[in-house]
């Protein structure tokens, strides 16, 4: 059953994903990055691509099922954690900063969603 979910923070996650993809492309093709041709960069770029799709779904599908919402929220946080660890071992502060941005977006969404749920519950209680 679909119901309205928060879209807050989703565009921030989209932005963060795009930054990560851009950085990965730069690193992959730039000798001075120390990461030229590195498989780890492709991995992070792929993860950022998935996060981008998830964030777009979050932004463009406000009416979604609770299970999809849970899937998106869990996927994105796992993506953020995994990519942050990868960014740490790639010694790429920009990737880690972008993931921090994505985390802010994720928190905005989760908190916003909880707040929305809380308001809805209050409204139901008021109606009672």
């Amino acid at each position: 059953m679909t119901q309205p979910h928060s879209t807050r923070g989703a565009w921030l996650i989209v932005l963060a994903s795009l930054i990560v993809i851009a950085i990965c492309v730069y690193d992959y093709y730039t000798p001075e990055s120390g990461l030229i041709g590195a498989g780890g960069v492709i991995l992070v770029a792929g993860a950022a691509g998935l996060m981008l799709l998830a964030a777009l779904a979050m932004a463009r599908m406000p009416n979604r099922s609770s299970s999809l919402q849970t899937f998106l929220v869990v996927s994105i946080i796992l993506d953020i954690i995994g990519s942050s660890v990868a960014g740490y071992f790639l010694e790429s502060p920009v990737i880690m900063a972008a993931e921090a941005l994505a985390l802010i977006g994720w928190l905005m969404n989760v908190i916003g969603n909880a707040a929305d749920r809380s308001v809805e519950t209050d409204e139901v209680e008021d109606e009672d």
């Binding site: 120390g34 990461l35 590195a38 498989g39 780890g40 991995l43 071992f89 790639l90 010694e91």
Partner: peptide, 8 residues
């Protein structure tokens, strides 16, 4: 050591 870009 650097493997697949990751620094150990």
């Amino acid at each position: 050591v650097q493997k697949w870009g990751f620094y150990m």
